[in-house]
Amino acid sequence: MNRKIYFCGSIRAGCQDRELYLRMIEKLQSYGQVLTEHVFYNIKDPSMDGMIPNPVTGKVKTDKEIHDGDVTWLDESSVVVAEVTQPSLGVGYEIGRAVAMNKKILCLFRSADTDKRLSAMIQGAHNNSTFIVKHYKEEEFPAILKEFFDQTLEKMSHKIYFCGSIRAGSQDRELYLRIIEKLHTYGQVLTENVFHYEDPLLETGKVRSSEEIHENYVTWLEECNVVVAEVTQPSLGVGYEIGRAVNMNKKILCLFRSADTDKHLSCMIQGAHNDSTFIVKQYKEEEVPAILKEFFDQL
Rank of each mutant, 00 (worst) to 15 (best):
Y197N: 14
W220N: 07
I179D: 07
K250C: 01
S30F: 12
V56Y: 11
F40K: 04
V207L: 08
I252M: 05
Q171M: 09
I144H: 11
L190R: 09
P289V: 08
D70C: 01
R167Y: 13
L145D: 00
K61Q: 08
E65Q: 07
S111D: 12
P234K: 03
R12E: 06
Q171W: 15
V39G: 03
T72W: 09
M101Q: 10
D150M: 10
A229E: 02
L299Q: 14
E241F: 02
L106C: 02
E37H: 12
K159V: 12
L255E: 03
L253S: 03
T36E: 05
H264R: 09
T85M: 09
C163T: 13
S165Q: 04
S10I: 05
I213R: 01
D45A: 07
T152R: 09
F109S: 07
E174R: 12
R18K: 15
I242E: 01
L177N: 13
G58P: 03
V194S: 07
M24P: 00
L202E: 05
D113Y: 14
I242D: 01
I132V: 11
K104M: 10
L153P: 10
I144P: 07
M101P: 06
K146G: 07
Q29K: 11
V288E: 02
Q298Y: 15
G9Q: 04
W73S: 12
P234A: 11
M248F: 03
V60F: 13
E287V: 06
V56P: 04
G124K: 02
W220M: 11
W73T: 03
F131M: 05
K137T: 08
K61S: 14
G58C: 07
L145Q: 00
T114S: 00
G90E: 03
V84Y: 06
T152Y: 15
D115A: 02
Q123C: 04
S210T: 06
T191N: 00
I11C: 13
C267D: 15
F295H: 01
S78L: 12
I166C: 10
E83M: 01
T72E: 11
K27I: 05
Q151P: 04
E230N: 02
Y176E: 04
N216D: 15
